Amino acid sequence: MAERYSSFTPGGTMWLLQRITAAFLIVVLAFHFFLLHFVNHADEVSFIVSAARMETLSYYSLMILFLVTATFHGVNGVYNALINQGLTGRKKQAVKTTLIVASVVLIVQGVRTANAWAGGVPL
């Protein structure tokens, strides 16, 4: 029988954060589909309506939290998948550094975009 291997330590912090972010993403995606596909139909969604929604602090905050959570969840999952495939040594460190830098760039640009969309001054 195949041996189960995971780079996550069961019950560890990263293991727990991966599960918490997954649960959060499921809820936020359900909210997104409900709001943008059932409450408002595709022909009713416009840039102006979306910008007005982003001007609401609760919606803006939810979208920023969604951005950070999705970035962490995705990058953490990719990193651990690569570890599970046997990535070690200098390659492991290079991949980790690259993923961290890419995450920071993605989050900074996402916040800049959200700020501009919400009518604020982009960073």
Rank of each mutant, 00 (worst) to 15 (best):
S61M: 13
I26Y: 10
I100R: 10
V104W: 04
A118W: 00
A116G: 14
V45H: 01
F38S: 12
G74Y: 03
R19D: 06
N80T: 05
H32P: 00
G12Y: 04
F24H: 04
R19H: 15
L87D: 07
L35K: 07
I107A: 02
I83F: 06
L87I: 15
A94W: 13
R4L: 10
L99Q: 02
H32Y: 14
L57W: 13
V75W: 01
F47C: 00
N80E: 11
M1C: 07
H37G: 15
L87S: 03
L62F: 10
L36Q: 07
M14G: 03
S103M: 10
L99G: 07
R19Y: 12
A81E: 03
V121R: 09
T9A: 12
F47L: 12
A30G: 15
A114Q: 01
H41K: 13
V95G: 04
F33D: 10
L65Y: 05
A30F: 14
A116R: 00
N115G: 00
L82C: 10
R112I: 00
V121W: 09
L57T: 08
I20Y: 12
L17Y: 01
A52D: 15
A70I: 14
T56A: 12
A51M: 11
W15K: 11
V45T: 03
L62E: 04
T71N: 14
L17C: 09
A102N: 04
N76R: 13
I20K: 02
S50I: 04
R4H: 11
P10Y: 02
M54A: 15
F31R: 05
L16K: 08
S6I: 08
R112F: 02
A94M: 11
L62W: 08
F33Y: 13
E44L: 08
R112E: 01
A51G: 02
G86C: 08
R112W: 00
L62Q: 06
V105T: 09
H73K: 03
H73L: 04
A51F: 04
G11Y: 01
G11E: 11
Q85C: 09
A114H: 05
V101L: 14
F31L: 06
R53S: 07
Y60T: 00
K96F: 09
V78N: 01
A42F: 11
